[in-house]
Amino acid sequence: MNKIPNRQAICETLMAHAKEDKHIYALCSDSRGSASMTPFFNAFPEQSVEVGIAEQNLVSIAAGMAHCGEKPYCFSPACFISTRSYEQAKVDVAYSNTNVKLIGISGGISYGELGMSHHSAQDIAAMSAIPNMRVYLPSDRFQTAKLIESLLQDEKPAYVRVGRNPVEDIYSEGDCPFEMDKATVHGNLEAENDVAIIACGEMVRPALEAARILGEKGIRAVVADMYCVKPLDKDTVVKMAKSAKLVITVEEHAPYGGMGSSVAVEVAANCPKKVITMALPDDHVITGKSGAVFDYYGLNGEGIAKKAVENLA
């Protein structure tokens, strides 16, 4: 089992570049430990900025720095950076078009036991609604590193959400196909499939598990790792829908305004098929560690497979 959380992959990728590129900055709001950014702060104190517990300031300061030519990466729990500093993300980053990368750590229900204040089940909806803001939810540490490598090359705003805990590897060092803003498809898009499962972030692993379970039952499934929630890889969404009888989306998010909503819009417009959106409830999420909470709501391999079987019948 992998022990490296995605946040650590971000830190390592940034550290690998920060030595050469003195414009790369990490900004934290008393969150360097939670963000796994302590090694960066220790190795590059001149490229690190601590703003204290002040997420609005975190994002505005980053915007000011970016405007003056720096490349700031802001780290704060996803629940805070996405909504506490929402207006700063909207006005100072997206609207002013500053090269700020917002990294939401411990996203979704990573802090399962800590209650709704610490859950970020609204971040995809909130960030996606801002023009000029991109939204990414990488699925494992290898994809996370590839994503950060790519983000280091551009000068546009982006929001990245990662979870707190290590997730099982999907890819490997030598085998992590990655194209910016293109979903990674697992399975055969050209074949006639029964179900197309589109997942993002930590839900990609259970989606793949569901495909395996369905395969054993003779049900053909194709899975898309839709790490690029915005801009959504619409082309792959339509191809997925065309290849199957049913589309299922799975995400660690509230049922409204998330990746599933965006997928449903594309499918409805271009290739009408039944779309089942699997997500967290529109309610207080039950208390517990994230794995147990996912199981409770059927956001696991078996739950997704069951949903497919029910809706194919």
Binding site: Q56, S60, I61, G64, H67
Partner: peptide, 15 residues
């Protein structure tokens, strides 16, 4: 917004 953004600019220019 102006003051916090100015802080970022001032930090960057000093650096």
């Amino acid at each position: 917004h102006g003051l916090p953004v100015s802080v970022g600019m001032a930090l960057a220019c000093r650096k």
